[in-house]
Amino acid sequence: MTAAPLLQVEGLTTLFRTGRGEVAAVEDVSFALAAGEVLGIVGESGSGKSVTALSVMGLLPEPPARIGAGRIRFEGRDLLAMPARERRALRGAAMGMVFQEPMTSLNPVFTVGDQIVETIRTHDRLPLSAARDRAVATLARVGIPSPARRMQDYPHQLSGGMRQRVMIAIALACAPRLLLADEPTTALDVTIQAQLLDLMRDLQTERGMGIVLITHNMGVIAEFADRVLVMYAGRVAEEAPVEALFDAPRHPYTVGLIGATPTLEGTGGALVTIPGTLPRLGDGLPGCGFAPRCLRATAACRAAPPPMVEVAPGHRVACLHWDRPTPGEARAPRVPA
């Protein structure tokens, strides 16, 4: 890491109050993101990916949620120490977010144009006409044909792909320096997915934004991310540059994830599965969350959470046995080309 990173998360722990007491949905998560970099966060449902992103944005309802520990710095400023008002002003202006469900992420009773203009005018005191011009330009930039006319459309008149473009336009309208994309393409079909990822990459190079891309799709990660954070049961399992992750995954969970991804060649016969499911939050496993499903697990794994080990520059893994692949474990295929 060279200069001050765009976003730095240190030891983030996010707790939720539940019927069984306070439970950590995210525990001791640290990562950094430089401007112009794409960090992929990958993991299965319930691994804490979205909670991490929402914690950064400050969108979790408190209560029941609570940031229990850690620090989130954005351009050097501590977000958690900031007054709510200042933090709100950053949202939508300096940091934007795109959500998974384009079908329901737009307000059905207002036109698309209204909603973009509203966001622009929340942050920049512009006359209406100027805000409208910028909205049209943004819609054009995200690839919406005849944007001036689409401004008058209500969300239900647009397809899912178009709506997601509108969501991206809203997120980008105030030229944020950080974009959090929570499964932005999961609800869309594959061709549209590719188009939107291309669009996001273009916008990213054009503006030098930092992007945090959350997904459970290893193909999208391979395609799009510079660095990858693999999360499991609320903790970071492995962090690595994307090539290193696919070439030499160290954490058994990463190995399993990559093994479970179908490739275009389709040579490998049956896909590998990871037996078992995520532990329930708050089950209070003292050790590694993955140990119950892990072929390498030993008594030491179940005793205490494994520390982060730096196995190569920029490649960290939370596994005691990272250098000891077990026979019979899935062999990782190469990066899907």
Binding site: M57, L59, R88, A89, L90, R91, G92, A93, G96, M97, F99, E101, T104, S105, L106, N107, P108, F110, E118, T119, T122, H123, M167, I170, A171
Partner: peptide, 22 residues
């Protein structure tokens, strides 16, 4: 709890605006 309310919050809308408009 609907997504567009969350999205409005992510775009920096104030509580008052969320209540009034969304």
């Amino acid at each position: 709890e609907l997504d567009f309310v969350q999205a409005a919050r992510a775009a920096g809308a104030t509580d008052g605006r969320i209540l009034r408009r969304h």
